[in-house]
């Protein structure tokens, strides 16, 4: 399934599906990609056949297909979110140590993750709120954050109470240090590099308005109108 969404002309904040379509469009043809649980999973709906993307699921498979329905459902064929999925022609299965060697060894091109917070230097917090009564569960989050060549984050820019999730330094417990390279939000796309945070695109907001929301110095690429 492929949906064309005109990002350049977007004059309002992006919805989840529009954001997923934008991430999908930015994935280079032939890439090996891991999509995290939750919002990142939506990206798979917008990958085209021509892109020839291979999806990895960390419980032990390359060549994962769409979610299984009806008679396709097989308890032995699930994704990292424990949702029944399908296999595509050319799929392969491997054990857990091999699956995480694929990540840690730098073989995955991109992983797309959700986040509580991302810092100006690319630190990621997405596994634990740090609340004293919370039962911690990390799964593969730290491995994914550390292993892929590029780590894209998808999130709303603001929390429900209007605080920026793009921060100077994370206050939630870290998942990985300096690992995030891009942040896709409903209001803008941010590139994180050694020279700081650059705004690539904005959606229904001016750079000046964006800077008032985000407590991190922002630079703009030439494509962003001021």
């Amino acid at each position: 399934m492929s949906t064309e969404i005109s990002i350049q002309r977007s004059v309002k904040p992006l919805g989840k599906d529009e954001l997923a379509a934008l991430v999908a469009r930015d994935i280079a043809p032939g890439s090996f990609v891991n999509l995290g649980i939750g919002q990142p999973t939506l990206v798979s709906n917008y990958l085209t056949e021509e892109q020839n993307i291979t999806l990895h699921t960390e419980n032990g498979m390359l060549g994962m297909g769409p979610e299984a329905v009806g008679e396709q459902i097989d308890g032995d064929l699930i994704n990292a979110g424990k949702i029944p999925v399908t296999e595509l022609p050319g799929a392969s299965y491997f054990h857990h140590a091999d699956s995480f060697a694929i990540m840690r060894g730098g073989h995955l091109d991109i992983c797309v993750l959700g986040a509580f917070q991302v810092s100006a230097t690319g630190d990621l917090a997405n596994w634990h709120t740090g609340a004293p009564d919370a039962i911690p569960a990390v799964g593969g989050a730290m491995d994914l954050a550390t292993g892929a060549k590029d780590v894209f984050v998808m999130m709303t820019l603001l929390t429900r109470d209007g605080t920026s999730k793009l921060v100077e330094a994370c206050t939630y417990p870290l998942t990985g240090v300096g690992c995030v390279t891009r942040v896709y939000t409903d209001k803008a796309v941010f590139l994180i590099g050694p020279d700081g945070v650059t705004v690539r695109e904005t959606f229904g907001i001016t750079l000046e308005e964006l800077q008032q929301l985000v407590p991190v110095p922002l630079k703009a690429t030439s494509a962003v109108g001021v």
């Binding site: 060697a101 989050a141 491995d143």
Partner: peptide
């Protein structure tokens, strides 16, 4: 509870 990142759990095993 000993909480271990999934890939570290696999590699330690």
């Amino acid at each position: 509870l000993e909480l271990v990142p999934q890939g570290n759990l696999a590699e330690r095993i």
